[in-house]
Simulated assay, not measured.
Amino acid sequence: MDSMNDINVGNKSRNKSLIIIVILLAALALLTWLYLSTRSRLGSLLEEKEKQRVELQHELDSLITEHNNIKLEYGTFSDSLVAKDSIIQANALEIRKLLDTQYEFYKVKKKLDRLRSISQGYLKQIDSLYTVNQELKAENEQIRSSYQMEQQKSSSLLKDKEALTEKVTMAAVLRAYKITASGVRGSGDKERITDKAKRVEKIKVCFTLGENPLLSAGAKDIYVRIARPDKIILARGRGDDYSFSYKGEILQYTMRETVNYQNQAMDICTYWINRSAKENLPEGVYVVSVYAEDFEIGQTSFELK
Rank of each mutant, 00 (worst) to 15 (best):
D61S: 11
T65P: 00
A176K: 02
E283H: 04
N5Q: 11
S276L: 13
V200Y: 04
E162Y: 14
R53N: 02
N133R: 14
I87K: 10
I126K: 03
G10F: 12
I87R: 12
L158D: 07
Y286P: 03
Y103Q: 11
L60P: 01
L36A: 10
I226D: 00
E162R: 15
D79V: 06
R256Q: 11
L18G: 07
S276A: 11
S155Y: 08
S146D: 12
Y286E: 00
N15W: 09
Q264A: 10
T208Y: 06
R236H: 08
S37H: 14
Q142A: 13
S243M: 12
A176D: 01
R96T: 09
A163G: 05
L28E: 05
V259K: 04
V173D: 09
L174H: 09
G121C: 03
I23A: 14
E211Y: 10
R96E: 09
N263R: 15
I88H: 05
K111H: 11
E296Y: 10
T300G: 06
V54M: 04
M149Y: 06
L112N: 03
G298C: 08
G248H: 00
V173A: 10
Y291S: 00
V200M: 04
I250H: 10
E283F: 02
F295N: 15
D113C: 00
L112D: 02
Y291D: 01
G75L: 05
S187I: 09
L45M: 10
T101H: 10
E104F: 06
T65D: 15
Q120Y: 07
M255E: 11
K247W: 02
E283D: 09
I23P: 01
I95Y: 06
A265N: 05
L234P: 04
D79N: 14
Y74V: 07
V168A: 11
R144H: 08
L24G: 12
L304Q: 02
G121R: 02
R175C: 01
D127T: 15
K198I: 10
D2E: 15
T101I: 10
L136A: 12
D113N: 12
V54L: 03
V205A: 03
I222W: 02
T65H: 11
A181C: 04
S154Y: 13
A138Y: 07
L42I: 08
S80A: 13
V9G: 11
E296A: 15
G248R: 01
D61Y: 08
M149G: 00
E283S: 13
H58P: 01
K137I: 14
G237W: 00
F77M: 14
T254C: 05
Q148M: 10
Y271I: 05
T300K: 04
I143D: 02
L63W: 07
R14Y: 14
